[in-house]
């Protein structure tokens, strides 16, 4: 058996990466065939610009899923934060420097509360975060029912500015993912996310501060939602309580497509990154070739199944 084949057999994660990467290339080629504008710099730039929101929420979800939980409050949180940002900045456009940290702190805090609740109440994270989602959503609606607010020009720019043709947001995303990967792979705290997700009881017996790890993972998820919300507000220019509704489930897809298993303890951010690319590219392609949005759904569903179905069947 060749070394590579052996390696792949060993490392199911590599296989997921490989499959998603191949699908990405196939999509790009298909896009190139279907439309000669698909593989232009312009379109690629657009595509990259869209990555950040889905990318950040999926990254947050990756931390939580790796740790063995799930965060279904992400969407409501993003919605609430866009409302906060747009309204705050409409009131004091000069206080961007204050608004952003406030948003990030609040987001991290909400995440930490999710984690604390699962730890202290010992309630399944699905229930905690779903309940939390309902609370956040209700709270946001209490404040603003309809989209509103506005953002100063300078702030909006962060979503659109490009450096050498590449959107800043995409650079930020790549840097954050790289840091996240480094943190998960090469720091003790990062590794403990895997330990807690692999077997929480074993982690406890091995003397790891399991509760703290859980809270940390949710807090990071909140922080990521905060970053996503900043870029989303900058792009849309308004705060919309409902804007995040679909994001919650969407945030899970790239994670799982990228080979991270929902039971926890296995996977990584590279897979999520590829998953985000795949989903975003697929959406863009389907829009490009004018597939009726109805069939877009069908195709999306099928691609998810293909991405996951090919390799997961090998696990028995």
């Amino acid at each position: 058996m060749s070394a590579i084949a052996m390696d792949i057999r060993r490392n199911r994660l590599m296989l997921s990466y490989l499959i998603v990467a191949v699908l990405l290339v196939l999509l790009a080629v298909a896009g190139g065939f279907l439309s000669d504008r698909f593989l232009t710099w312009r379109n690629i730039g657009n595509l990259l610009q869209q990555l950040i929101v889905l990318g950040m929420v999926s990254l947050g979800q990756t931390f939580v899923v790796l740790m063995g939980g799930i965060d279904l409050a992400i969407g409501s949180l993003v919605g609430a934060l866009t409302v906060f940002l747009a309204n705050f900045l409409e009131w004091r456009p000069d206080l961007v420097w204050l608004a952003l940290p406030l948003a990030l702190i609040a987001a991290t805090g909400v995440g930490a509360i999710n984690g604390l609740l699962t730890v202290v109440l010992r309630v399944h994270p699905l229930i905690v975060t779903l309940g939390m989602s309902s609370i956040i959503f209700g709270g946001t609606l209490m404040y603003r029912k309809e989209p509103g607010g506005s953002v100063p020009r300078a702030f909006a720019d962060i979503a659109y500015t490009k450096v050498g043709g590449i959107p800043i947001s995409a650079i930020v995303l790549v840097v954050i993912f790289a840091l996240a990967g480094l943190w998960l792979q090469r720091t003790r705290t990062g590794r403990s996310i895997y330990f807690a997700g692999g077997d929480r009881e074993a982690a406890r017996l091995n003397g790891l501060p399991v509760d703290r790890i859980v809270v940390l993972a949710y807090a990071l998820s909140g922080l990521c939602a905060g970053i996503a919300a900043i870029f989303l507000t900058a792009r849309t220019g308004v705060g919309d309580p409902r804007i995040g509704v679909a994001l919650t489930l969407q945030s899970v897809t790239p994670v799982v497509v990228g080979g991270t298993i929902l039971a926890g303890g296995r996977g990584g951010v590279l897979g999520t990154f590829l998953g985000v690319l795949l989903v975003t590219m697929l959406n863009s392609l389907l829009n490009f070739v004018n597939v009726s949005s109805y069939y877009q759904w069908v195709i999306q569903g099928l691609i998810i199944l293909i991405a996951v179905g090919i390799h997961s069947s090998r696990r028995k």
Binding site: T118, R122, H124, I127, G131, M132, I135, F137, G138
Partner: peptide, 25 residues
């Protein structure tokens, strides 16, 4: 109003689950 409903619902769902301790999966 609907927004209060959502908040109360969220609190009670978490509270109910905590009340009889649905154990972690």
């Amino acid at each position: 109003p609907i927004e209060m409903q959502l908040i109360i619902k969220g609190i009670i769902i978490i509270g109910a689950a905590a009340f009889y301790r649905t154990r972690l999966a």
